[in-house]
Simulated scan of single mutants.
Amino acid sequence: MSLTRWGGWSGALPAVGVMLAIAALGAPAAAQPTLVFAGYGGSSEQVLRERILPPFAQAHDVRIDYVAGTSATNLARLQAQRERPEVDVALLDDGPMQQAIGLGLCDPLPAAPVLDDLYPLASANAAGWAVGIGVVATGLAYNTDAFRKLNRPPPSSWAELGDPALQGHVLVPSLSNSYGLHALLALARTEGGDARDIEPGFRFMSDAVAPGVLSFETSSAKISELFQTGEATLAVWGNGRTQALADTGFPVAFATPKEGAVALVTMACPVAGSDVAELSRQLILYLLSPEVQAVLAEHAGWGPVNRRTELTPAVAARVVYGPEAIARLIAVDWAEVNAERPDWNRRWSREIER
């Protein structure tokens, strides 16, 4: 099989694909199983559906059904299906994934050599209940044409979300979304606080940002639309999503604030109670292979979590790539944040998104 489904590469199927194919050939004939994969929508869904999942499905003679939704939506789905799970592999942002682990919704991963090749931030916890598949930076996406017309340089600080000159054209996702939570944490740091002292973040968001927010939209597809219609000029977003929109030819770019961009790790776990548990685990290990990591970097904008992944200079320049780039990101202590998140959500509803 050629690699046309792997982003136009030439040559034979990568070693991981060969091993998968050999394993499939040695398996006894049986009814084709179905594996349900719950992940993001938008450009990420397209890459996974078209380039990543089909080779695995073919090698294992398994049907893969994709369920698209935000991390909050898919976490709620897992909770609702706890007694009779329909999802077999869940792909969630690192914060919601920590919640899923705490709720007992994930099964452990098997020991495997590929796990030794991952950066530390790819580990959700020492027990191995979930693993990072890619990393992106949360920062500021901006319409380059609009900024040029305003005679403004690229945004350089999280505080610019509250600039009166941009009032009515700023987009900050809701706190239920990782991008929105990152914005609150970043503003707290910018204003002298942190996760333990979130008050400065809420104060700045309430006084300076919320009055000028165009939307608290969480759907990346809708965020793209608001940029394309000219309604959004500045948004809290990920570098991968921003690059996907820029690849369509739209004048948008990603800026890393001087206070730092926040790490967002896309994590996968085998769902507890799955009737295709072994296939689920093998699919996750497949996603960690250097070959698949390179496809995710090029076409989804996810920085590789596998140290052995090699990228072309052009792709490497567009994603979080290498130990130095990962070290520059602001890490989130999710155990600390998730303990406070219910109270923050209630406060956000009362004071910010009214």
Rank of each mutant, 00 (worst) to 15 (best):
R5K: 14
W6R: 15
G8R: 10
G11Y: 12
G11M: 07
A12T: 14
P14I: 06
A15P: 09
L20W: 13
A21N: 08
A21Y: 13
A21Q: 13
A29P: 00
A31N: 03
F37C: 00
G41K: 01
G42T: 12
E45F: 12
I52E: 05
D61F: 06
D61W: 02
A72M: 09
T73K: 12
T73Y: 14
R77L: 15
R77T: 13
L78M: 04
R82S: 11
E83V: 09
E83R: 12
E83S: 11
R84H: 14
P85E: 08
E86R: 15
E86P: 01
V87R: 00
D88N: 05
V89N: 02
A90Y: 10
D94A: 05
P96V: 11
M97K: 00
G102K: 02
L103P: 00
V114M: 07
L115F: 14
D116P: 09
D117F: 08
A124W: 08
A126G: 07
A126I: 04
A126S: 08
G134P: 03
V135E: 03
T138R: 05
G139I: 00
G139D: 01
N151Y: 14
P155K: 12
E160W: 12
L161E: 08
P164E: 05
A165L: 12
L166Q: 12
Q167M: 09
G168W: 02
L171P: 00
V172S: 01
V172Y: 03
S174H: 14
N177K: 00
N177T: 05
L181E: 10
G192R: 02
F202N: 07
S206C: 08
V213Y: 06
S215P: 06
F216Y: 15
T218G: 13
L226I: 03
L226D: 07
F227R: 11
G230H: 04
A232V: 14
G240V: 01
D247Y: 02
T248P: 02
T256W: 02
K258I: 05
E259N: 02
V265P: 02
A268M: 10
A272F: 11
A272Y: 11
D275L: 13
R281M: 10
L283E: 11
L283Y: 15
I284M: 15
L288Y: 15
A300M: 02
A300S: 10
G301L: 05
G303F: 00
V305D: 02
V305Q: 06
R307N: 02
T309N: 07
T309W: 03
L311E: 04
T312A: 12
V315P: 14
V315G: 09
A316F: 10
R318V: 00
I330N: 13
A331C: 04
W334E: 06
E336R: 03
E340T: 04
E340A: 13
R346T: 15
W348I: 09
I352Q: 12
